[in-house]
């Protein structure tokens, strides 16, 4: 029988990566993972261990959603009072919008670059597509488990995954399939 400690040790790295891709900040990601761990162990540790993974990712998703809500609200407040946050002063928002037609020349260089480009492309996806892709493809949750974690229907999971895959492939495939790697 798996202990809660073992379970958390198994998922913490992935959970951190998922939260980091969603928030774009290591510290925020660590806070989200820690809050999720605490919530799981204090409220759901008596549940059957086969439920831990969907429950943990559901908590993680809720924390990420809360983070985005807080961020949006803070942004609106700052915009309303005509102020920018100190750390946003020199950032051109237009630069943060991904150009789907732009080339990513670094992709063709190596697997490391492919990894970096993938992370970058994932960060540009809408939140729901991003989370669906990570939970289904990377974490390996079933459609049902992903739907439970994201609190949406199984049809939505399939739609989000399909759109996420299309967008990511559109960004990365030319380099991926013509590059010197993959095609296993």
């Amino acid at each position: 029988m798996q202990s809660l400690d073992q379970f958390l040790a198994e998922v913490e790295g992935r959970a951190f990566q998922i939260a980091r891709i969603a928030t774009g900040c290591d510290q925020d990601a660590l806070d989200i993972v820690q809050e999720s761990m605490i919530s799981l162990v204090t409220s759901y540790s008596d549940k059957c261990e086969s439920n831990w993974k969907p429950l943990f990712y559901r908590i993680l998703q809720n924390r990420i959603t809360d983070f985005h809500r807080r961020k949006t609200l803070t942004g609106k407040i700052f915009a309303w009072i005509g102020l920018k946050k100190a750390d946003e002063e020199d950032i051109d928002l237009l630069e943060q919008i991904a150009d789907p037609n732009a080339d990513m020349p670094e992709l063709a260089l190596s697997k490391d670059r492919f990894s970096d480009a993938l992370i970058h492309a994932l960060e540009q996806l809408p939140a729901r597509q991003q989370q669906t892709f990570l939970l289904r493809i990377w974490e390996g949750l079933s459609v049902k488990e992903t739907a439970e974690a994201m609190q949406c229907g199984e049809g939505s999971v399939k739609t989000h995954l399909s759109r996420a895959t299309q967008t990511l492939r559109a960004h990365l495939e030319p380099h991926y399939f013509s590059g010197d790697h993959h095609e296993s």
Binding site: S115, I137, Y176
Partner: peptide, 14 residues
């Protein structure tokens, strides 16, 4: 194939 490559890349990042 793309999913497999993505999985591999994400594992590497982790």
């Amino acid at each position: 194939a793309f999913h497999e490559a993505a999985r591999e890349a994400l594992d590497k990042q982790e």
